[in-house]
Structures are given as structure tokens and as C-alpha cells.
């Protein structure tokens, strides 16, 4: 019996997202997952910190009955990093939208990944600026018509997954707001991951980008247009479980089992723990209609974390140093006496 239930993580504040906003589901997933995280890691609720930047999704900390910091646009990653370095015992969860994490906060985002600071970063990707009422974001599809691109954007989007894996990130997972169980599962895996865990949630914005991912998430098509990757399992998808991914030369290829001599044995097996950047990059990059969009944990490799490096250096130097107080410090080196 876990120490906490989801309701322990709900604050007394009324949630104020628009009706039908995808953010509700991810908030629910987080509140549902944290009791298990605390249980597994022996954490008190007071050791959970939720940090955010600016944007619709960044209001999330107010709805969590934990320590929370709703900071400034783009900088949540830096704030989270400071919190984790100051006190590595804390379980730090960050919420950032696509604009917050990848436009104004892009620099902090890639450097958190590079350092491999052990935070859990939930990237809410609705491919639009919602809070400022509908301008294109760095993940908006090429040509998308928005208020600031009335004739369509002329800039290609980032794929957050390829950004993370390109920066040799140690963890990347993807879910969709409508997939509550999968969202809970990747959050739990992110919490277990030792290092910087980036989770992308494809979320819907009812008001400014409705249906931003329905072409892959709608009930009748999702099995054909997405693939949920699971470790040790064949990369098989489709309503009839008859489609799969193989490597054709150096490229991924969608095949149908039973056609052209393809058997189940030919289908790739997923291994998120293998340090196989090339394949994981291709998986993260898959886009409908050429490919199914990959969901689940794409990459989860163990690498030294930044805060451990900081702490072990502090411990080493402290053990070796002769200076353990300011009085000792200011008397060290060249001093002279005046009598």
C-alpha cells in the first residue's frame, strides 16, 4: 500500500486550463504516478519539486500540492538545474511547453541534456503558442497558418526527439495526452532513469491548434499510425499487428509481415538501453505518413550525472584539502605579521 494517493498531490487551486485541453490528462498522469515514484524511491512528498517556465502548461505547479516554482519564460531548465545541484536528494519535475523549452529556452534545454542533470522534463508539445493566443512555435508544422504566419510558416519545425538524441541525451520518451496509461508509464521510467529524462507529450490545444495530432491519435487510426516501443519486443504495429520496422541498408523501412518474404524474425527488436544513437535517432525522427510515430521510451541509457560529478568533486577535494574553515583559508599562503 503506497504512502500516498493521487489526491495527495492535488492542490486546492482550481485548474484553469481551457475545457478539453490536453494538459489536464498529463496533470492527472503526474498525480497518479508520483505516489509510486515516492514509494519506489523512499521519498517524502516534500522532496518532490515541480518547476515550470511560462506558458499554459507552466501553470501546472500551482495544481500540485508539492514544492513548486513557476519561473520565467524559458528558464525553468536552469532553475531546475540549480535546485538539483543544490540538493541532489530532491526529485525534480519540470513542465515546459514547446515555446518555453525549445525557443526562448533552447539554450538551457540542450545544456541540461549535455550535462545530464538528473531532472524529469515534461515537454508539452501542442505545436502552438497558446497563452499568447495562437502564434507558431518551433514545433509548428512547415506552412502552418497562424496569427503570425497568415500565409503559412516558412520555417521547418524541430523534432524534440532528434534534438535530444542529437545532443546525446540519455533518455527520451514520447506519449500523447490521450494515452493516460502510457504517459504514467513513461513518467515512472523517467523517474527511474539516472540522468536527464526528456518526455515529450503531444498535447492538443482546443482553441488555437485543435486536432494538432488527431491524424495519428484518433482511435480508428492510432494503431496504424503510431508504434509503442517496448524493450525486448518486436517493433510491430497496426490494427492487425502485421506491420513492422526493419533496417533496409542504413534506413528504417515499414514492412508488412507475410509479404515479400518478410517474417516476424526480420522485424527489429527494441532496446532503449543500448547506446545505439543512430537507430534511436531514426526511431525518434519517424513521422506520419511515411512512418508510424514512435511512442514509449526510445532511449534510456545510463550515463554519469552532472550533480553526482559536482558532489563527488566536492567530497574528493574536501577529503584532500587542508582548508576547512574560513579562518584557515584567509591565513593560507603568503601572509606576514606586523608587530
Amino acid at each position: 500500500m503506497a504512502k500516498y494517493t493521487a489526491s495527495d498531490f492535488k492542490s486546492d487551486q482550481q485548474v484553469r486550463w481551457c475545457p478539453g485541453c490536453g494538459d489536464y490528462a498529463i496533470l492527472a498522469a503526474l498525480q497518479r504516478t508520483l505516489p509510486q515514484v515516492c514509494e519506489e524511491q523512499g521519498l517524502d512528498k516534500s522532496e518532490v519539486v515541480v518547476v515550470s517556465g511560462i506558458g499554459c502548461s507552466s501553470r501546472l505547479p500551482y495544481y500540485m500540492n508539492t514544492f513548486g516554482f513557476h519561473s520565467i519564460h524559458g528558464r525553468a531548465t536552469a532553475i531546475s538545474t540549480g535546485i538539483k545541484v543544490a540538493n541532489p536528494k530532491l526529485s525534480v519535475w519540470q513542465v515546459s511547453g514547446d515555446g518555453d523549452a525549445l525557443a526562448i529556452g533552447g539554450n538551457h534545454f540542450i545544456h541540461a541534456i549535455r550535462r545530464n542533470i538528473d531532472i524529469n522534463l515534461m515537454l508539452f508539445n501542442n505545436r502552438i503558442y497558446g497563452m499568447t493566443k495562437g502564434q507558431y512555435s518551433p514545433t509548428s508544422k512547415f506552412g502552418m497558418i497562424t496569427k503570425t504566419s497568415p500565409y503559412g510558416t516558412v520555417e521547418p519545425p524541430f523534432n524534440p526527439g532528434s534534438l535530444v538524441i542529437g545532443a546525446k541525451g540519455s533518455f527520451f520518451a514520447r506519449s500523447i495526452d490521450t494515452e493516460l496509461a502510457l504517459s504514467c508509464e513513461i513518467m515512472l521510467k523517467a523517474s527511474r532513469h539516472h540522468g536527464c529524462s526528456i518526455m515529450e507529450f503531444l498535447t492538443n490545444c482546443m482553441i488555437f491548434n485543435n486536432g494538432s495530432h488527431t491524424e495519428i491519435s484518433a482511435k480508428d487510426v492510432k494503431e496504424d499510425r503510431t508504434i509503442v516501443l517496448e524493450d525486448g519486443e518486436k517493433m510491430v504495429f497496426g490494427k492487425n499487428h502485421d506491420r513492422g520496422l526493419i533496417l533496409d541498408g542504413r534506413k528504417l523501412k515499414v514492412v508488412t509481415i507475410g509479404q515479400d518474404g518478410i517474417t516476424l524474425d526480420d522485424i527489429l527488436v527494441h532496446d532503449s538501453h543500448a547506446d545505439n544513437l543512430g537507430l534511436q535517432m531514426m526511431l525518434a525522427d519517424m513521422n506520419y505518413p511515411d512512418f508510424p510515430v514512435a511512442l514509449g521510451v526510445i532511449r534510456d541509457v545510463d550515463q554519469p550525472t552532472y550533480e553526482e560529478g559536482v558532489c563527488s568533486q566536492v567530497a574528493d577535494v574536501t577529503a584532500k584539502s587542508k582548508i576547512h574553515s574560513v579562518d584557515e583559508l584567509i591565513r593560507s599562503g603568503s601572509v606576514w605579521e606586523s608587530k
Binding site: 540549480g82 545544456h111 576547512h324
Partner: peptide, 24 residues
Amino acid sequence: YKSLNVKTMQTEDEIAGICCAIGA
């Protein structure tokens, strides 16, 4: 002087410097 209970971060930019400090 890490032996005096000091943690330092050379951050990716000036903004990260102050924001990490605010987090701390």
C-alpha cells in the same frame, strides 16, 4: 574552495547563471 561547502556552476549563459542561483 570546494572544501568550504561551495558548489560552483559555469553555466551556458548569464541568464542560466542567475537562474541556477535562484533555483539554489
